[in-house]
């Protein structure tokens, strides 16, 4: 029996645009093994952002079931979803999305604050920043950091609550190729050392090829899965 961290059954998302129903996701059945690195690819409008939002518990499916780390999240209320995001999911965004007026330290502490952790918060945040190689940038604000460094802070923030999965949405999209490569190395390394499941949504075939498995979407359906590993 494989240990699935993500299981979806007939996952469907329908948007109502006036009178027209748009089936953004049309019966997705995927399983993702714990500790794997996978990528989701597809052209714009294929539903990959919708899938990421659902897998990251940012949104609720219209139909079907989604089990994340053993929890049925399909029918949860807003605040319950917030808790699940807080404990189970780490997000890395294309545009970093750091709080601009806060230091790296405060940015990394944020998920722990919402988790209600007070004791040892600073130490854990410091450890996370150390893990992404920013031990000397803890008191810097995002504007004082390069793009690559900002993305590192975002990664530290994503992993600080020890989530079951890390969702990365075009993590290298806003970076030059050198920093992009470093960020990918860092992400893959995290997977190796900590065993965190990593899901990368990307357009970039170079990024996708570094993952163990690629899920290709088109018109809200899984087109093909290429296993590499």
């Amino acid at each position: 029996m494989t240990d699935w961290v993500i299981e979806t059954h007939n996952l469907t998302k329908i948007y109502q645009m006036g009178n027209i129903e748009v089936r953004a996701l049309d019966g997705i059945d995927i399983q993702i093994e714990r500790g794997s690195v996978i990528s989701i690819m597809g052209p714009s409008g294929s539903g990959k952002s919708t899938l990421m939002n659902l897998l990251g518990c940012l949104d609720r499916p219209t139909g079907g079931d989604y089990i994340l780390d053993g929890i049925h999240v399909g029918k949860m209320k807003d605040d319950e979803l917030a808790d699940v995001r807080n404990r189970k999911v780490g997000f890395v965004f294309q545009s970093f999305n750091l709080l601009p007026r806060q230091t790296s330290m405060a940015n990394v502490e944020l998920p722990m604050r919402y988790a209600g952790i007070i004791k040892g918060r600073r130490e854990k945040a410091a450890q996370a920043l150390q893990a992404v190689g920013l031990a000397d940038r803890m008191t810097h604000k995002p504007t004082e950091l390069s793009g690559g460094q900002q993305q590192r802070v975002a990664i530290a923030r994503a992993l600080v609550n020890d989530p079951a999965i890390i969702m990365a949405d075009e993590p290298t999209g806003n970076l030059d190729s050198k920093s992009g490569k470093e960020i990918m190395e860092l992400i893959l390394n995290l997977n190796k050392t900590k065993g965190t499941t990593i899901i990368i949504v990307t357009h970039d075939p170079v990024v996708a090829e570094q993952t163990q498995r690629i899920i290709r979407l088109i018109d809200g359906k899984v087109l093909a899965e290429d296993g590499i590993a």
């Binding site: 605040d79 995001r85 997000f91 998920p111 919402y114």
Partner: peptide, 16 residues
């Protein structure tokens, strides 16, 4: 709005 979205993504509840 974007900051609020981010905070929610990181697990901020309605109350927060």
């Amino acid at each position: 709005t974007k900051e609020i979205g981010l905070r929610k993504a990181l697990g901020a509840r309605r109350k927060d």
